[in-house]
Design a protein around this nucleic acid. Structure first.
Lengths: 208, 208
DNA sequence: CCATATTTCTAAATTCTATTAGAAACCGCC
DNA sequence: GGCGGTTTCTAATAGAATTTAGAAATATGG
């Protein structure tokens, strides 16, 4: 044995078979993003991961521990992704350019790249309170990232001086997060969505 | 007896004591808006309504029937409210004015007036499929209302001709719906929120 | 190729709620 | 003040899902 008992971290250096843990976590993210917290049964997760339900308990202490991990990873990955994309920008990029890129990165990651992001977004307000503590810390960091983007743009005069950027930012993130509730890749183009969202910021918050 | 058995409608003309049904429905909306579908237990609803759990079955066929009713009422009330407010506008109001008023009405109703609206919004994507059929019809009507507002504004030249209003509308409704996830009346002013959201539309979608 | 630890399974127990049965309380009315 | 119907309660049932127990299987290392 020696499963999940060592606190909140994730040991399991054993490379070969502990891919199973990852498979289970991936499966949980997938099911959670599709069915939500209420609709996610351990048996479903196990089926997707290709194991029997009790096998999950070898890697996670409980259903809720598994959910919490997915939520945290989701929040974490979104932030990392957006930070990376921003870091890759050339020095010359202005504050408004950086905002546009952040919008692009957030939407594409959430819709294409990561079940974790979708799961994290959709279920943030639906999991029991106690599961929100660790993910909330990540979300706070992400929130700060966006705050800084807006503050920089406003100070540079590229966002209207009289705009309440804090409120605008919350509205914008809401608009982008809610996309998971209606998005259908078959009927809409992701490029157009990104462009429309960017326009919402450029014109909605931009100066002039 | 003679409870809920008569199909999907809601008889109970008996005025006096069938306020209980309303109390239960109100309680369900309140709990549902706060705890979500997964976290809403019949016992909680009953406690808020001031009855014992089994009493609920005198008025509703099942837990899901109760939830469905709340969801439908929520979607219905939002639409009615916005329609009423729009109808009360003077003839002279332009398409952009009408959009501004709709934003105002949607946000104020959702945040101040109705647990039903909040419950309906928060749980739309989290209740089992079968419960979404009847509410979905209401939402479709509401969606059409907004589509018409944007089409009118665009035809009048008050919204940029090149804007994808369908996508912008979905983003806007998402932004407003997501507000229930972060709104705290103690730390933020509702007037400011409304003004910021209106600005998001006026500048984000408006011509010039 | 055997011994040992790791991993996963089957079967069973536990728990948590919705739901039902049936008895009591309540209410208006004669 | 008793009577019939309505409404609500207490107590029991049922069912589904998480979670444990403990046995098999699988891999690992000498």
């Amino acid at each position: 044995m020696e499963p999940h008992a060592t606190g909140t971290e994730v040991p399991h250096a054993t490379p070969k078979s502990a891919q199973t843990r990852q498979r289970i976590l991936d499966a949980a993210a997938e099911v959670l993003s599709r069915k939500g917290y209420a609709g996610t049964r351990l048996a479903d997760v196990a089926a997707v991961a290709g194991v029997q339900a009790p096998a999950i308990y070898y890697y996670f202490g409980s259903r809720d521990a598994l959910v919490e991990e997915v939520m945290w990873v989701g929040a974490h990955l979104v932030r990392l992704h957006v930070e990376e994309v921003l870091a890759a920008l050339p020095e010359g990029a202005g504050p408004m350019d950086r905002l546009m890129v952040a919008v692009d990165a957030h939407l594409r990651f959430e819709l294409q790249l990561s079940d974790y992001a979708t799961a994290s977004i959709r279920n943030a307000g639906h999991v029991p309170e106690q599961l929100r503590v660790r993910p909330a810390a990540e979300e706070a960091l992400y929130s700060r990232l966006w705050r800084d983007l807006f503050v920089a743009a406003q100070q540079a005069g590229e966002v209207r001086a009289d705009l309440d950027t804090s409120m605008f930012r919350l509205l914008l993130l809401g608009a982008m997060n809610w996309v998971v509730e209606w998005w259908n890749p078959r009927t809409r183009s992701l490029d157009e969505l990104v462009a429309t969202a960017q326009g919402m910021v450029r014109h909605g918050a931009g100066a002039r």
